[in-house]
């Protein structure tokens, strides 16, 4: 391993951040807006579909194949194919980010709702609850950990991918990172640090929302037990 170890760059990056705080702020706002819009659209598409499929316990192959194909999609490849059909600009980037955000949300919503204990659902049905009430008051609250695991995966993924998507003209912090010729290494490092912080902040923000919407008695439960592996050895989640 060749060690260059020119660590003074990190100090220069700090100077860059101080000198160009306006630029970094603007790019951060762009980055957040682009990511939020993309996740928002993906939620509108994927959440109702995943929850519905989970509620009726059918078409599991859709949820599983969407997850498998979604994992295999490189951001760069999605952008490459989109740029064949569309001009460079933020709409290409937004579509690419939505495509990348849908699979984790959809699959986790499906798994979360479909794996709610069936005896609990039957009990609710026996109490005379309508299907809508069962969904709203039984299945969704119990599926919250997995639903949010999917959303968190998607959010982190989108914030990261938006960086790469800058090559297709989406703006954001990636615009600095992919343009070392313009911003020099200290700018690239400063933007890289900032986008990393942004990923953690976004993850924490979604975790905060999860805590708020989780009914009090269910708080503190984690999705981890339910994740990763089922009997068939089919992995459902990426995080």
């Amino acid at each position: 391993m060749t060690l260059v170890a020119d660590l003074s760059v990190f100090g220069d990056a700090l100077t860059f951040a101080v000198d160009h705080s306006d630029l970094l702020w603007d790019k951060t706002v762009e980055h957040v807006a682009l990511s939020a819009a993309s996740v928002g659209i993906a939620l509108v598409i994927a959440l109702p579909l995943g929850v519905l499929l989970g509620h009726v316990h059918r078409f599991s192959w859709i949820a599983i194949s969407v997850a498998n194909v979604g994992r295999a999609l490189p951001t760069l490849a999605v952008i490459a194919v989109l740029l064949v059909f569309m001009p460079i600009g933020s709409s290409v980037v937004a579509i690419a980010l939505v495509v990348l955000a849908v699979p984790p949300i959809l699959t986790n919503a499906y798994v979360g709702v479909s794996e709610v204990d069936q005896e609990t659902v039957e009990a609710a049905r026996g109490m005379g609850m309508s299907e809508w009430q069962i969904l709203r008051r039984v299945e969704l609250p119990l599926a919250t950990p997995l639903l949010f695991a999917g959303i968190r995966t998607a959010v982190v993924y989108v914030v990261a991918s938006a960086t790469i998507a800058a090559i297709a003209g989406g703006g954001g912090l990636g615009e600095i990172i992919v343009n070392q010729a313009g911003y020099r290494i200290e700018g690239v490092i400063a933007a890289s640090l900032l986008v990393s912080v942004l990923a953690f902040a976004a993850d924490a923000a979604v975790a905060g929302v999860q805590w708020l919407v989780t009914p009090k008695p269910l708080r503190g439960r984690h999705a981890e037990d339910a994740t990763l592996v089922t009997d068939a050895g089919e992995a459902h989640l990426s995080v």
């Binding site: 960086t163 790469i164 990172i177 890289s192 986008v195 990393s196 990923a199």
Partner: peptide, 9 residues
Amino acid sequence: TIPSLALFQ
């Protein structure tokens, strides 16, 4: 959680 492009850089 660190974005890949940022980690590379």
